[in-house]
Design a protein around this nucleic acid. Structure first.
Length: 405
RNA sequence: GCCGAGGUGGCAGAAUGGUUAAUGCGACGGACUGCAGAUCCGUUUCCUGGGGGUUCGAUUCCCUCCCUCGGCUCCA
């Protein structure tokens, strides 16, 4: 059964498929590792985790890559203020990030490339871009100006162009900043900041080249599925896509998936607004499966307003579901119920996930099953049905990453 | 300004054409309890933002208006 998703680039529903004879190439944008993971990260990576679990349960081998941005201005600033080198801080936060994701039962990516390990590849990308004649120097930076493209070929830039946060609403984009859509490909910079030798002098490559270089080397362009949170659409995925369109004459990915934000107090969770909920805090509060239940109970197409009371309600609900499953599966010699309802539930969960990654519907079905089963008091499962029923729930666990047994 | 997401009962939140519109929370009644809590059982009439349209039939599809919210080159 194909997994179909709403592709953010085309806006249409597309099937996620691998190329014949190759594992499915899944490239997910990882974080800049300069601070702890929060529940927003968790939600994004949970949806991709379910994508992977669903595909693998369907027998599709997946090659899962997540990049880590380990040098960047803010990371360097924080490292300096802590008296650490940028590399030391990045490694520390990287370990913390994966420890927290593991605690959430998120499957670890097969490859976790670091930007600092791909600088030579990024330099090669800059040289190739130079050959297009569209790279020019501005001060210490080299800027790439993509060609104009017909609407629909790449993510739009015009919505960022006209007016946005750097200007007052209603005022035009400042001329001095150049055309929207341009992006930096090399910046001169010396140690102790990160710095590598290059044909343009010591410095660092532009962020957007990172994912292109990694995906190109590890998976090949185009990948089968790519994405992250929606704040990456512009400029990051736009810029990566420009490079792919230039070199490969194809989009970076055959399907793009962007999952909606977690909002706290009505605003996007961000360090600058001080409304972060660290993932570790939430995990300590309710545990991995209840948190997963809560974060995936709302469709990935819809924002989730973080609400501590709702989290605790969800945790309670999850506990009820789990206890219903366990008590139904407990051996009982007088049991008469067949495994049919569990097998049917598993099939529906399968279909909901395949059909647009509808975790909200899948979870609602599980909840309804639990409530009905509890209400029915059928006296339990007939012993001979137990193996079949257990297998059905094991499969649901495999698809969703929940622990129910 | 541009782009986008929404508006369902006291609250939260399902259901994308078809029986009396889920479910949870809350509230109320009961069981249990020395009392309370927890738990269990039961009850909860009245709800699909306004206006048009398509249809035998609209929460669901189309048009329009109103309202709310989010994002807008640091950001999952």
């Amino acid at each position: 059964m194909d997994l179909t998703l709403r592709d953010t680039l085309s806006g249409t529903r597309r099937a996620v498929r691998r190329r014949p004879g190759r594992p499915l190439a899944l490239y997910v944008c990882g974080p800049t590792v300069y601070d702890v993971a929060h529940v927003g990260h968790a939600r994004t990576y949970l949806f991709f985790d379910v994508v992977r679990r669903q595909l693998e349960t369907e027998g599709v081998p997946v090659q899962h890559v997540m990049n880590l941005t380990d040098f960047e201005d803010k990371l360097e600033a924080r490292a300096t203020s802590l008296g650490l080198t940028w590399r030391a801080l990045a490694r520390r936060e990287e370990r913390g990030f994966f420890r927290d994701l593991r605690a959430l039962n998120v499957l670890p990516p097969h490859f976790r490339p670091r930007a600092s390990d791909f600088v030579p590849q990024m330099i090669r990308v800059v040289r190739r871009l130079e050959r297009t004649g569209r790279v020019h120097r501005v001060g210490d930076e080299w800027i790439y100006t993509p060609p104009l493209r017909p609407a629909g070929e790449n993510f739009p830039t015009d919505r960022q162009l006209a007016t946005h946060a750097v200007t007052e609403p209603g005022h035009p984009f400042p001329e001095s900043r150049g055309r929207a859509g341009e992006f930096m490909v090399w910046k001169l910079q010396d140690a102790p900041k990160p710095s590598w030798p290059s044909p343009w002098g010591p410095g660092v490559p532009g962020w957007h080249l990172e994912c292109y270089a990694m995906a190109q080397e590890i998976l090949g362009i185009p990948v089968d599925l790519h994405g992250g949170a929606p704040d990456l659409i512009y400029p990051h995925h736009y810029a990566e896509n420009e490079v792919a369109l230039e070199f490969e004459k194809t989009p970076f990915s055959r399907v793009f998936l962007h999952t909606a934000f977690v909002l706290v107090g009505g605003a996007k969770m961000a360090k600058s607004t001080g409304n972060l909920i660290p993932l570790r805090t939430a995990l300590e509060d309710v545990g991995a499966s209840p948190l997963r239940w809560y974060l995936l109970s709302t469709s990935h197409t819809q924002r989730l307003a973080w609400d501590s009371a709702a989290l605790h309600r969800a945790a309670k609900e999850y506990a009820g579901v789990r206890s219903a499953v366990r008590s139904w599966l407990a051996p009982r010699s007088s049991g008469r119920a067949t495994a049919v309802s569990a097998v049917r539930l598993e099939e529906r969960v399968r279909r909901d996930l395949a059909n647009g990654l509808a975790t909200d519907r899948a979870f609602a079905r599980i909840r309804t099953w639990a409530l009905r089963t509890t209400a029915r008091r059928s006296g339990g499962l007939a012993p001979r049905e137990r193996a079949t029923a257990r297998r059905a729930f094991r499969t649901i666990e495999a698809r969703t990453g929940l622990s129910l047994l």
